[in-house]
């Protein structure tokens, strides 16, 4: 059946005719691409083999007990909840802020001096090591003004460490990623799409809300996923601003008492339990690391589905 279009193969271009340098370059590209896959598979495989055997459902849901004794130290419920809580708080703060900044930068961005300032501000935040953010956060949140975010110790000092304060600093880690991906997504929407909306008598606000943000949604979802991964993986802020302890509560108001209290995340749990860090329970460390990996990978796939990154046709420029 070759009536419509005979499937003929012409002589293919062969890399054999290329210069040596071009061939080396091509080989390097292949090696780099395949190498990344190998490394990625190695990480997942290693953590799977080392971790899966210690991931027991009862440990997932049992409280952590500070003990140097393997059997009596409990599970990793606390760090698991801590990780998820920080992700939720960090993204909840960073997402609206980041989208707002990106919309202002791409759709308004005037005066241009201010836009440049905002841009470099975002870059500085992106480049600041999280331990620096953590120390800065601690200094700020120990101020009397922010006592409501954690609690006031006996003697009047503000503790400054809580899910609130750690979550706020985590949002700073998430912010640049969300700003960058939202900006990129907005920029990739061609101008004639905006004009088409104006040409129907729509205001700029309506255009942003009804056309541009829905169009940028896949990009925003990508940024949020990356940001969640960063929050889940950060350790410095957790140690300084969350305490790295089991879940502790402050006050009697439900939910709020947890948010005002301290805790830990899977990252600090790994650090505290691994012999490479401070602990003597390598099995639990591997298991927690595996759970962390599963969370991050699941986030990636989950948001892929929600964000609708697949099967979308883009506009022509």
């Amino acid at each position: 059946m070759s009536a419509v279009a005979p499937r003929r193969k012409g002589a293919k271009e062969s890399a054999a005719t290329w210069s040596v340098l071009d061939r080396v370059g091509l080989a390097a590209c292949w090696v780099a691409g395949i190498g990344l896959c190998v490394v990625c598979l190695a990480i997942i495989g290693f953590m799977f083999v080392k971790g899966i055997q210690y991931v027991r459902p009862d440990l997932l849901f049992s409280r952590t007990i500070a003990s140097s004794n393997e059997a009596g130290s409990g599970g990793y419920f606390d760090p698991l909840v801590g990780t998820l809580l920080l992700i939720v708080i960090g993204i909840a703060i960073a997402l609206p802020l980041g989208i707002g900044i990106a919309v202002w930068l791409t759709e308004y961005g005037r005066p241009s001096g201010l836009a440049r300032l905002v841009e470099s501000g975002v870059e500085v935040v992106a480049g600041t090591p999280s331990i620096v953010l953590a120390i800065f956060g601690l200094a700020v949140f120990q101020g009397k003004l922010f006592a409501f975010l954690s609690f006031t110790q006996q003697g009047g000092g503000v503790w400054g460490r809580s899910f609130f304060t750690a979550g706020i600093m985590m949002s700073l880690i998430a912010l640049p990623l969300i700003v960058a991906s939202t900006r990129e997504a907005l920029r990739s929407i061609p101008n004639h799409v905006r004009e088409a909306s104006y040409a129907l008598g729509k205001t700029r606000a309506a255009t942003i809300r009804r056309v541009l943000l829905p169009g940028a949604r896949p990009g925003i979802a990508t940024g949020a996923t990356l940001a969640m991964g960063r929050i889940a993986g950060d350790t410095a802020i957790v140690i300084l601003l969350l305490g790295g302890s089991a879940l502790t509560t402050q006050g009697n108001v439900p939910v709020l008492n947890i948010l005002k209290g301290g805790g830990s995340t899977l990252t600090t749990f790994v650090y505290a339990n691994s012999p490479a860090g401070e602990g003597n329970k390598p099995d639990k460390a591997y298991a927690a690391a595996f759970v962390l990996l599963v969370i991050v990978v699941a986030l990636n796939f989950g948001l892929d589905l929600i964000g609708g990154r697949r099967g979308r046709t883009a506009w022509t420029k």
Binding site: H192, E195, G201, V211
Partner: peptide
């Protein structure tokens, strides 16, 4: 201007349906 553009509508060179 929003009223004017409802009375004088426009179609562009590239098809540009909105993402909805």
């Amino acid at each position: 201007v929003t009223l004017l553009r409802r009375r004088v509508a426009m179609v562009f060179q590239q098809p540009n349906p909105f993402p909805m």
